[in-house]
């Protein structure tokens, strides 16, 4: 079901980030290639969100290099942000605007020139129910918000997509639908980095799984290995060792 990985889009090399009272990242290195889905697994406080924030250009790392499609968030934060899209656990949309209006607004902010019908088509692509398209987002379920989030990412035609706990709190069918969508994006060549606790989704969707603990990469498992090994056992082993 997966396509072959191509050239790297997201590269993290020896990333270190220390806060006043603790070290969040201790030389983390990762690569996500074009069309690849990398699941980032790790316990709470392992450094997943810190790594994502560094990638998005919201945090300045103390050491190490980051590159998104060849640009560094430390130097060219605006260019980096042009290259990627981000879907958090709770997609933040304007509750008084409709799904369509939110999509149009955020896409136009990203200078995406599309007609109204194209935006509708995009929402259709992500399977947002037709009746909801023009309804205020305040009435949307979490899954529907995630779909609008993906539509925003699709409209932007970004080279990388970063997901932070995207399926947390979704029911199994919404979760399944979501995984279908991101796989479609990967097939279109988007590099996807997905931080998650959901071992099942990681095993199902990812080409590779990177397990991190205490800010370090402890193991990377490939698609082939994922089929053969028990991911949960691996994960627990590393966490216990780390603890």
């Amino acid at each position: 079901m997966q396509t072959q990985p191509k050239r790297p889009v997201i590269q993290i090399d020896n990333l270190v980030k220390t806060f006043a009272d603790h070290t969040a990242l201790q030389g983390l290195s990762l690569t996500v290639n074009q069309g690849e889905i990398l699941a980032l697994l790790g316990p709470n406080g392992a450094g997943k969100t810190t790594a994502i924030n560094c990638l998005l250009g919201f945090l300045k790392p103390d050491k190490g290099c980051i590159s998104v499609a060849g640009y560094s968030p430390q130097k060219d934060v605006a260019l980096v942000r042009q290259q990627l899209a981000y879907i958090p656990e709770q997609v933040a949309l304007y509750p008084r605007l409709s799904g369509l209006e939110n999509l149009a607004y955020f896409s136009k902010v990203a200078k995406v020139a599309m007609a109204d019908c194209d935006f509708r088509a995009l929402l259709d692509t992500v399977s947002l129910p037709n009746h909801a398209i023009d309804q205020p987002v305040s009435g949307y379920s979490k899954g529907m918000r995630q779909k609008v989030g993906i539509a925003i990412a699709l409209a932007k035609k970004s080279k990388a997509l970063i997901l932070d706990e995207p399926t947390s709190g979704l029911d199994p069918s919404a979760s399944h639908e979501f995984s279908q969508l991101i796989q479609r994006l990967a097939r279109q060549g988007v590099a996807i980095l997905m931080a998650t606790h959901d071992l099942f989704r990681a095993q199902e969707d990812a080409h590779r799984v990177a397990i991190i603990n205490k800010g370090k990469l402890v193991e990377t498992l490939h698609y082939q290995q994922l089929q053969e090994t028990q991911l949960e056992a691996h994960y627990l082993k590393h966490i216990k060792v780390g603890a």
């Binding site: 981000y86 949309l93 902010v109 925003i152 932007k156």
Partner: peptide, 12 residues
């Protein structure tokens, strides 16, 4: 509410 994060990521 998080919209600012998305807004900034969209290049706003």
């Amino acid at each position: 509410s998080g919209q600012l994060r998305l807004f900034l990521l969209q290049g706003g």
